[in-house]
Design a protein around this nucleic acid. Structure first.
Lengths: 149, 149
DNA sequence: CAAAGTAGTGGCTTTTGTCCACTAATTAAT
DNA sequence: ATTAATTAGTGGACAAAAGCCACTACTTTG
């Protein structure tokens, strides 16, 4: 991999995060902010989510995560349950309301994605998807910061 | 483009921003924060950068950008020059120091990219690059929020 | 069992940004 | 051409997002 190629990747990173940043502002609702939405969605996606695992996964401070989780808990979006194995940790669950909110966030997110690809032809859309798919697989292998079970 | 495909893209967005978020924390130096670095780099990348264009490009409030630019100006990273055409706007330039800082930020950024692709084989790296390259081109066409000259 | 480490929490601070009002300059409308 | 409406940049005040540190309760290691 030469410098020119690295530079292309850097360019993509800049451009794509910028675009996502703009889109994400339209994703979350008035109840919760983007960071809070990210954490909520992570509770939905993770296998056995605990505050600590989420903090590591999203690279956020654990005290910040703790506060956000309390807020989400007050909103009745998630529940905290003590574990028997380790009395320090708490397992997190989405409530039914929480699941609905996550679902809505995903719908909003998908709409924003559509905004980008709607400008592309069918062939280009397919090409877009294939590239993303490839990157997903490569990230799965090469990516950093895997948080397991 | 079906739902399954959209979902794959959403998954990528989540995963990739997460990875980038982690990496970016290792990019900026002690003098300036990440948001400040973003603005500084934008001054370097844009054609005829003005505070307003940067605010639009990064989707930031203009008063915030104004303050950051003043800080970067105090650090002697950038210069503000009045334009003759429109006396309201100020054109921004990197100083030599500023160019060095941007260069260093890019180097740091590249190192972080290397961290990801180092885990991949040569073929996979090539594949990674090709996908990124395709996405760059498609974003150029389909993307939103183009800020021109 | 003592020592070292870990999960979660709260107080406090910094970073990041928003909102508003204002000035000076530019552009549009009459 | 003069007035009216917009626009770029700035500063004050404030709010939201996130980080740092110290602490408690619990667990793991030796």
């Amino acid at each position: 991999m030469n410098n020119k190629q690295i530079e292309t990747i850097r360019h993509f990173n800049r451009k794509y995060t910028q675009q996502l940043g703009i889109l994400q502002k339209n994703v979350f609702n008035s109840e919760i902010s983007w960071a809070e939405a990210r954490i909520l969605m992570d509770v939905g996606y993770m296998k056995n989510p605990t505050p600590m695992k989420i903090a590591i996964n999203l690279d956020l401070d654990k005290s910040y995560v703790s506060r956000v989780i309390n807020k989400l808990n007050n909103l009745k979006y998630i529940e905290k349950k003590d574990t028997k194995k380790d009395k320090r940790t708490k397992l997190l669950y989405l409530t039914n309301t929480g699941k609905q909110v996550v679902e809505q966030l995903n719908i909003n997110s998908d709409k924003q994605i559509q905004l980008i690809i709607d400008n592309l032809s069918n062939e280009e859309q397919e090409s877009f998807y294939q590239s993303i798919n490839t990157l997903n697989q490569l990230l799965e292998k090469g990516g950093i910061n895997h948080v397991e079970n």
